[in-house]
């Protein structure tokens, strides 16, 4: 149940927020293509090309992803460090997405690598409605370091190495614990600057042998 009573969400937008997409239709189509590619090719870096206005604290990729994915029907939860008024107002204004206080009710979650809650806080969906599993946009420092973490599964030939994304072992363990939850699970985008890397729920996380 993602539906909300909209009442509590409404904040008057007295100051003009930062701009969004310059050309909403074609920019969000490009954004959607890039987001699809990222999940179709787990572990590969994809660039979100569409330029968009954004609040200061937000990188280009998660900003474009939010403008592409969020709408009136997608409750969004802003994680620690990104829950400021500038982002909230900007997001509400451009997408109409309701902001929720309860992270488990969010369809889209915006997070920062250095302030990551337990993954238990988010909806995995149910076997009847796996589409209600949350999409996580995690803003990370970079996507380039090499680790022993690998992903296997649909969209991956053999296995692919993943960067740590500046995330703790605890995060990767929690993600690995969700390997068997499929079709329930979380679809994750790691974002740095205008680059992003997708890790769908269907990817099986392990360590390089």
């Amino acid at each position: 149940m993602n539906q909300l009573s909209s009442r509590s969400q409404d904040l008057p937008i007295s100051q003009a927020p930062a701009p969004g997409f310059a050309d909403p239709v074609s920019d969000s189509q490009q954004g959607f293509r890039a987001l699809l590619d990222a999940l179709a090719h787990p572990g590969c870096i994809v660039t979100l090309a569409a330029a968009c206005g954004r609040p200061e604290a937000l990188d280009a990729a998660p900003a474009a992803a939010l403008l592409t994915l969020a709408d009136y029907d997608t409750p969004v939860w802003l994680g620690p460090g990104l829950d400021d008024a500038a982002i909230a107002t900007w997001l509400r204004f451009h997408t109409g997405a309701p902001l929720v206080a309860d992270s488990a009710r969010a369809a889209i979650v915006l997070l920062k690598a250095d302030a990551l809650p337990d993954l238990q806080a988010f909806s995995l969906g149910s076997d009847i409605a796996p589409e209600q599993g949350a999409t996580l946009l995690i803003q990370v420092p970079d996507l380039t370091d090499e680790t022993a973490i690998v992903a296997r599964g649909p969209g991956i030939l053999g296995e692919i190495g993943l960067p740590s994304c500046g995330l703790t072992d605890a995060f990767w363990q929690q993600r690995a614990a969700l390997n068997d939850a499929f079709p329930r699970g979380l679809d994750i985008y790691f974002c740095a600057g205008d680059a992003m890397l997708g890790l769908p729920r269907s990817s099986h996380i392990g360590m390089r042998a």
């Binding site: 993602n2 539906q3 909300l4 009573s5 009442r7 509590s8 029907d73």
Partner: peptide, 12 residues
């Protein structure tokens, strides 16, 4: 109650 979810066939 205003906070109660009103089921919506166009969504679920």
């Amino acid at each position: 109650d205003d906070d109660e979810v009103v089921g919506d066939l166009t969504r679920e």
